[in-house]
Nucleic acid binder design. Sequence first.
RNA 1: CGGAGUGUGGCUCAGCUUGGUAGAGCGUUGCGUUCGGGACGCAAAAGUCGCAGGUUCAAAUCCUGUCACUCCGACCA
Length: 574
Amino acid sequence: MKLDKLVGERFKERPSDCVVDSHALMVKGGYMKRVANGIFSMNPPLKRVTKKIENIIRYEMDRIDGQEVLFPVVLPAGLWEESGRYESVGSELLRFRDRSDAPMLLGMTHEEAAVHLVKEFGNTHNRYPFMIYQIQTKFRDEARPRAGLIRVREFTMKDAYSFHLTQEDLEAYYEECLEAYNRIFKRAGIPETITVASDAGMMGGKVAHEFMLPTPIGEDYLAICSHCDYTANMEVAQTIVKNASVPMEALTKVHTPNAKTIEEVCTFLGSDVKQSCKAVVYQKNVDDSYVIVFTRGDMDVNEIKLKNYLGEEVYPAIITEESGIVAGFIGPVNFAGNATLLFDISLEGIDSLVIGANEVDYHSTGFNVERDYGEVTYVDLSKILENGICPKCGQETIQLSRGIEVGNIFQLGTKYTESMNMTYTDENGDVKYPIMGCYGIGVGRLAASVAEAHHDDYGPIWPITIAPWEVHLCCLRSDDAETKDFADNLYKAMKDEGIEVIYDDRQVRPGFMFSDADLLGVPVRVVVSPRNLKESVVEISTRDKAIQMKVPTDRVMHEIKGLIEELYKEANRI
RNA sequence: CGGAGUGUGGCUCAGCUUGGUAGAGCGUUGCGUUCGGGACGCAAAAGUCGCAGGUUCAAAUCCUGUCACUCCGACCA
């Protein structure tokens, strides 16, 4: 490929709307162009990158006996009505009607389609286990796309679905898939990726893991133990609190004018935030009834845990006069409103607390839950803290980090097979539901994540496994006949050898040329110039500058091939 | 869906406060000089100032509405 014909416009300046580096570099480098909010077209360089990522994924999925299939993008609503998700999923599912007014939808995930495809095939136990996967466009009408390819509305995803006779078999396969995923991320150039326990969300099921690339621009928060191997999404990280023992005191009402927040109250009273009790109010989506969570003053409510505990959706409350809730002064004692009161685990063992008195400008001190309120069940509803206690090793070694979710795996159980009535007959003639697992990787997001993790000020630094080309050939001074001739021949020779090469023979200044080369991030750069030819050498370097050498002109092909081989070997080392 | 901000040639932006009918740099086209980290000179093309109303003799500028984008939050495999 010659660079002067490469489709896509590159820019000198960083595009103003781009906040994260991977987004900025991809727009600046002509990798993609925005079409609509969260919807992009890909130019050849990015298409080449994602194609290579897809092929790595294919290789690894096939290696664990996956069979590639293809489901439709457009699905009839009826299929999703079977599983109940046509109703339960919100407006991120794009629903529309076809010409005969039949309700349709754009696939955002394909459990229903997968079950539909193999329902008959899977009617006998002889055929299990098996896994099918596809690499295909998904559409999710996200409320807020952001960060280029990190969160988009339309994207390519590899989604896989496995079917098993027993939970043990699912678990064994789940492990295999987890390992395959780790190989994929390593080979694609982000060996930094870690596996964390996660919430199953709308997918259903109990056990789930996410593959996270730790980075400050990530959207998820992770709890990582620096002492043992515990890792979890903060959504599910178990909070453990050890409270210092404090002397019991009598429950005493005190005047706290204008002190509404925990900080204000504790400052006013001169008390420790850790001995205060914070009330956070929610309402249930289903009937708007109130739920109040009491936590220790320094803790925050983890809404995912709350939703999972209640088994239903909640939203931050709008507190009305009629509710009987005195905002800013809420406490468990003499609570007059109508609400479900929950006590977070962080309050357990504190014998004396500052609480709201349910009266404007009054709090109470010396609150003891058991003595003044009664026996309660403490529930884990709060977010784990930095330097919190690790649920696995018990040390105070939890570190919080942000991460991009590049993949996920779920043990689904029989949620879809039951709702869609997919059954098999076992060896005893009994009819049973198969057990499912599902496994996803966002291809574009993975490409963006690699760029995010590996770039410099001038552009992405692609690993050779997914780079748009293997070699970037620069001919400086193509107006010089001898130089041009040599470069042309080298270009042809590389193509003949099957090397993927992008050739820049434009009559532009060297700096201009190198800037474009940096933006394309191709791992091997070869520079042919009059200056080099005078010494009978050609310059070969890597994009990351780890290797920079001058090789004799008669050994150029040999050296290039050797370097490429070396880079592949390094990148594929598992 | 709430809060904040921004919309001016392909890109990055100035002009708006205090209305007088549009500018710069980059990029593009042509010619010439240059040539190892985004060169320079000359010439040229390119914008109904997001859109729609309104105020005014006159609107990029003031007012109203609307749309789009970015950020924060809510939401979210």
